[in-house]
């Protein structure tokens, strides 16, 4: 067991599910009931005609645990597809964050300057605050938040990761 603990890795898993009541509770309950990690989880309908939602889960664990997570997800009746984007080839992942910075004077100017470097857009503004929208990989969003901290950061709202495989093939 002990040698397996050391090779814990982060995986991004895409799950296609029936968009029905309780399906998210099933997935979350599975993770909490079996003691798996959830680092991020997003869900939204992706196909209104087929009534399907896509859940993107970022989790971490040993090879055996990640296998278990995928097999346990496949066991759920409303789950149709489970894909481990991390091992199935190249993929892109993004998250969006809304970040509220309250400051005046020099700090306010500096916040705007850094936002520009990160291509974050100010989508709300008052005389003493901005709300920035920043989109990117998790690391970029985190870097931006860190830089905003001394400049009057007061509130953060993040979507969590959405991801999709590169290339022409669907899930």
């Amino acid at each position: 067991m002990t040698d397996a603990v050391q090779d814990s890795n982060r995986h991004t898993i895409s799950v296609l599910v029936d968009n029905e009541s309780g399906v998210l509770a099933r997935v979350i309950g599975l993770f909490s009931g079996r003691g798996y990690n959830i680092e991020s989880l997003t869900v939204a309908e992706v196909d209104a005609h087929e009534n399907l939602s896509r859940i993107t889960i970022v989790t971490s664990g040993t090879r055996m645990i990640i296998e278990q997570i995928k097999n346990q997800l496949r066991r759920l009746v409303p789950v149709h597809k489970v894909h481990d984007l991390t091992i199935e080839g190249p993929h892109v992942s993004r998250e969006l964050a809304l970040i509220k910075v309250a400051s005046t004077g020099e700090k306010r100017v500096e916040a705007l300057r850094i936002a520009d470097i990160f291509r974050a857009r100010a989508i709300d503004s008052t005389n003493e605050s901005f709300v920035f929208e920043v989109v990117g990989a998790t690391e970029k969003v985190e870097a931006f938040i860190t830089l905003m901290q001394p400049l009057g950061l007061v509130d953060v709202s993040r979507t969590g990761v959405v991801a999709i495989a590169r290339g022409s093939k669907p899930l």
Binding site: M64, Q68, N71, R74, R75
Partner: peptide, 11 residues
């Protein structure tokens, strides 16, 4: 018949 039984406790 249950893939989640495989490699759960014993590899």
């Amino acid at each position: 018949i249950d893939p989640s039984s495989i490699n759960k406790n014993v590899a």
